Computed example of a mutant assay.
Amino acid sequence: MSTKTWQMRRNCALSPKQLLKFYIILVCLSVTVAAGFLLAGVWVILIFTLLELCAVTIGFLIYCRHALDCETIEVNGKQLIVKKFIGYKETIYEFNTQWAKIEPPLEGSKTFFISQSSLRVEIGQFIRQEQQLPLIAAIRPYLG
Rank of each mutant, 00 (worst) to 15 (best):
R9H: 12
T111P: 04
S117V: 12
F112W: 11
V42D: 03
N11T: 01
N76P: 07
F95K: 01
Q129A: 08
G36L: 12
E71A: 15
A100S: 08
Y142S: 06
P134R: 05
Y63R: 08
R10N: 10
I86D: 05
G87N: 14
G36D: 09
R10G: 08
I139E: 06
A40G: 14
F112I: 09
T32G: 00
C28D: 02
S115Y: 13
L80A: 02
F126A: 05
L39T: 06
I47E: 01
L46P: 05
R10M: 02
L14T: 02
Q116M: 05
Y142R: 06
Y142K: 04
V82G: 12
R10A: 03
G144E: 11
M8N: 02
I25R: 04
T5C: 10
T97K: 06
C12Q: 00
T97S: 04
K84E: 15
E52V: 04
T3Y: 15
V44A: 09
S118I: 11
M1P: 06
P105H: 08
R10W: 07
N11Q: 07
W43A: 15
P105Y: 08
G36Y: 10
V31H: 00
I102K: 00
T91V: 15
R9D: 07
R65H: 11
P134S: 12
F95Y: 05
K17E: 12
A35H: 08
K83W: 13
I127Q: 02
I62Q: 00
I24R: 01
V27A: 02
R120V: 11
T72N: 14
V42N: 11
T49P: 03
L143F: 06
V33F: 09
F95A: 02
V82H: 14
T49W: 04
A55T: 13
C70A: 13
G77I: 00
V121F: 12
Q131M: 04
F85K: 13
I73Y: 13
L38S: 12
L80R: 09
E71K: 13
W99P: 08
L80C: 04
F126L: 06
V56K: 04
